[in-house]
Design a protein around this nucleic acid. Sequence first.
DNA 1: AAGACGAAAGTGGTTGA
DNA 2: TCAACAACTTTCGTCTT
Length: 307
Amino acid sequence: MGVDTTIVKCLECNSRNLFYDENRGERHCQDCGLLLEERIVDQSPEWREFNEGGESTNRSRVGAPSTNLLHDKGLSTQIDWQNRDYAGAAINSKNRSQMYRMRKWQMRSRVKGSQERNLSVALVQIGLVCSKMGLPKTINERAADIYRRALKAGLIRGRSIEGTVAASLFIANQQLSTARTVDDFAKFTKLTSKEISRTYRDLKRKLSIKTPVPTPMVYVARFVSDLGLNSETERRTREIIKKAEDYELTHGKSPSGIVAAALYIAGQETGQVRTQREIAEVTNVTEVTIRNRYKQLANNLGIKLEI
DNA sequence: AAGACGAAAGTGGTTGA
DNA sequence: TCAACAACTTTCGTCTT
């Protein structure tokens, strides 16, 4: 069988308009946003071997790795209803009663009850949003885990599945610093950013989840890549933000605004000029904010710009 | 014509009595 | 609960290159 590793058409909308992001090592469809390829594919088993002939022999590989992404954690070997063994031969009567008991227990333990159904719907949605937004599997796993906890704590009642899905994803995003904003999640779900942040706060409080204090720094790589700037400009941008944080010029200001301004200044300095319009586009702040911010930063950090 | 500028009015969230 | 407030947005006329 020939192995074709190059995807030329989107699997969802058949568009040939694909985009390869070198920094993130991902290939997306530019039309529907589906994540088609990731550079890092870890196919190794999820446990390590500590002693010779120990782990690997005891925990022999059966089935796919256990994962939070499936409602029953992937432990779902099906027992067929036909009284035949794998080769198609009839199973003798001695084993039949055993088979019957196994089926019975499987039926009892499988998708049943509203919680399980809720979870399987939610996990599909989490996967879908992750794929559309080009988020790595780690986010998917983390969000799934948070959703499970929310479900277990009975926090879904009175809330929409989609809202909790988005909030779980946003928490995962904050914890793992994948540089997506609430607005990004709003764009890829049917929810407003307001609803998402409200559920986000709620979930964090009720599940006592901690997320790192947000810093503008996490957005730098993403915006640099989106604007096609070089590493020199990126370095300088980080420098400016670091200084701004040291001088406490960032408190109470929107992170994207800070990054946008720093990018603008750095771009002017290194000759990688981007217009306020372009920067406003990718950072999702207005040109006015960029102006206000960059003037403030330039003044307080003693940066002279010859514009 | 494109980009930058800044005034003025409007919006949504936070804070403190 | 309400008003004051800071940050940010929208809009728009003007200036500069």
